[in-house]
């Protein structure tokens, strides 16, 4: 084609793109879908708010003091997991293990609080998933959130086991980050659930 000796244009140099690692982008994408899932449950909860003819109603049976404690546990666990991450980044494996364990403990405390709350609701108040719309939407929304906390706790326990066997190093920061991100997400969802179920809906 180019018989003449024309100087071919040279392309500009390529600048490397800076972006998050695939695992984090994958986690973000996954959490977007989780967000859509919870949004659906929350919208359903709001749709059915105050539409029951028969009790018990949220105002009658939900205890704000109990849930204030569990909420504090869960929200503070966001800070402790962040502390664990920072410790790992510094290379302080002991600090990582400590804060990680604290996070798990707080998660378990939250679940224990939920279990206590549910026991009361089922045994004392006779509220089950088929009692009324409140029961239907409450157990579905709070239950799916608790399920997510449980999954988080199991994953974190697995990592704790690895950490105790000294298999977690500062190089694994990228493997820890998705778990931390997930945990922050679960906390964030709880803030909305807490506001909708225990503040606005009560």
């Amino acid at each position: 084609m180019s018989a003449q000796a024309v100087a071919l244009p040279t392309p500009p140099p390529i600048e490397p793109e800076r972006t998050l690692p695939p695992a984090l982008w994958g986690t973000i994408a996954f959490l977007v879908s989780e967000g859509a899932f919870f949004a659906t449950l929350i919208v359903s909860y709001i749709t059915f708010l105050n539409r029951d003819i028969t009790g018990p109603t949220p105002a009658e049976v939900l205890s704000l003091s109990l849930v204030a404690v569990t909420t504090t546990c869960l929200l503070s666990s966001s800070f402790t997991i962040h502390a664990a991450e920072k410790a790992l980044k510094r290379g302080a494996l002991g600090g990582f293990t400590f804060w990680w364990a604290v996070t798990i403990a707080l998660g378990i405390a939250f679940l224990a609080g939920t279990a206590y709350e549910w026991t009361g609701l089922i045994r004392d108040d006779g509220l089950t998933i088929n009692t009324n719309l409140f029961g239907t939407t409450f157990y579905t929304l709070v239950g799916f959130h608790a399920f997510h906390v449980t999954v988080g706790v199991i994953v974190m326990l697995t990592i704790l086991g690895l950490a105790l066997r000294h298999k977690v190093t500062a190089q694994q920061e990228n493997a820890i980050a998705p778990v931390a991100l997930y945990w922050h997400f679960v906390d964030g969802v709880w803030i909305v659930v807490f506001l909708v179920v225990y503040i606005i809906g009560r």
Binding site: V32, S33, A36, F37, G135, T136
Partner: peptide, 24 residues
């Protein structure tokens, strides 16, 4: 990512209605 989870949630509600006696 945005559209499938609401379907999943709604289908779970269908299952809860059918299997657990929920009232969605």
């Amino acid at each position: 990512l945005i559209a499938i989870p609401p379907l999943t949630a709604a289908l779970i509600m269908v299952m809860f209605d059918r299997q657990l006696g929920a009232h969605f």
